[in-house]
């Protein structure tokens, strides 16, 4: 297993490299640059040339990329070109924890709601419970973040006035570098964005769990388990559930990717200072270093997430062995 993990990590280096190279090239191909338009007034020509020279933007692209790689090798994610009081490292240290907290809470919520709902629907198949769960699930999958977020803000923030509608309820310094202090303020602020991000996921997990559990419950080895004289609860928990979670684990990979892109939208809606929001900002303002470095971090997270899914997969299904 260890050898497999190491091999996977080595293989993912060229993948990550290709992603960063591609992003670097595309963002530089965008018209304009970080200094072409500041606010209302255009920067004087001489100033712009000086500034661009200072960040090496006057050099050919391959040299710029090479310099960027050398920076990365030193652990430097690059400078901020327009807000020079901060570096990219500072921005990442502030915003990465917010996105991670939002994303993991959303995934957790998705499983905490989706799996039990799916089990419940499967065990009461073709009952009103099942139909209601399926209806809610279809609704959850169909409603986009962009609709759900403002809708929740309208209902719980504006009409009912029970939950805060913007900002993340925790700030640096983070516990252990990325964990929030679990204050009341943190939880109340987390509710709406986490629900917005997690609902669609929980709906698809519920539907998948239901379908897969139903299939497993029909299988021969469940009959074997019943013939052994096991209690129905043992049959479901020990024999059916783990087997039925194998397909659910499969969609965990695409889900993680969905969470990453979902944070772009949700952070924007709720004005959270997370990586997704910084990412959008970096495109607008042509913060080349910030954009490339965030892409690097997103792709590393995605690669690690998929590796994690494969490990979970092997744990769930003993027929899968990576060696």
């Amino acid at each position: 297993m260890t050898r497999y993990i190491i091999r996977r990590l080595i293989v993912s280096v060229p993948v990550v490299f290709a992603i960063v190279l591609f992003t670097f090239a595309v963002v530089h191909a965008l018209p304009g640059g970080p200094f072409s338009n500041v606010g209302e007034k255009a920067m004087p020509e001489q100033m712009r040339i000086i500034m661009e020279r200072r960040f090496g933007l006057d050099q050919p692209l391959y040299i710029q990329f090479w310099n960027y790689l050398k920076m990365l090798a030193r652990g430097d994610l690059g400078p901020m070109m327009r807000m020079r009081s901060q570096t990219v490292n500072d921005i990442v240290a502030q915003t990465w924890p917010v996105s991670i907290q939002l994303g993991s809470l959303a995934v957790f919520l998705a499983f905490a709601i989706g799996v039990p709902a799916g089990i419940f629907a499967a065990l009461r198949r073709n009952s009103w419970v099942d139909y209601t769960a399926t209806f809610v699930a279809v609704l959850g999958v169909s409603i986009n973040n962009i609709v759900l977020g403002p809708l929740l803000i309208l209902i719980f923030g504006v009409w009912l006035k029970v939950l805060p509608i913007a900002f993340w309820g925790a700030e640096p310094p983070w516990v252990l570098g990325f964990l929030p202090k679990p204050t009341w303020q943190f939880w109340t602020h987390a509710v709406l964005p986490v629900f917005t991000l997690g609902t669609a996921m929980s709906a698809s997990i519920a539907r998948l769990t239901r379908a897969s559990l139903l299939e497993v419950l029909m299988s021969d080895y469940i009959r074997t388990a019943r013939a052994k004289g096991l209690k129905e609860r043992t049959v479901i928990i020990r024999h059916a559930l783990k087997n039925s979670l194998i397909p659910v684990a499969t969609i965990l990979g695409p889900l993680l990717a969905g969470v990453l892109t979902g944070t772009f939208v949700v952070e924007q809606i709720f004005a959270l200072n997370g990586m997704g929001r910084q990412f959008l900002m970096s495109i607008e303002q042509r913060e080349y270093f910030l954009l490339s470095s965030l892409t690097l971090i997103f792709s590393i997270m995605l690669v690690l997430g998929n590796l994690f899914v494969d490990i979970v997969y092997a744990w769930l299904d003993p027929r899968i062995r990576y060696d």
Binding site: S219, D220, Y221, R223, T224, A225, A227, K228, G229, L230, K231, H239, K242, N243, L316, D317, P318, R319
Partner: peptide
Amino acid sequence: RRQRREMQMIFQDPYASLNPRLTVGNIVGE
């Protein structure tokens, strides 16, 4: 459930009737 101790079944399909997630020790020992 208790009565099942006295009467057991050998199933037709040896491929489908064993839980793929359990070891032989658990299948037989459960």
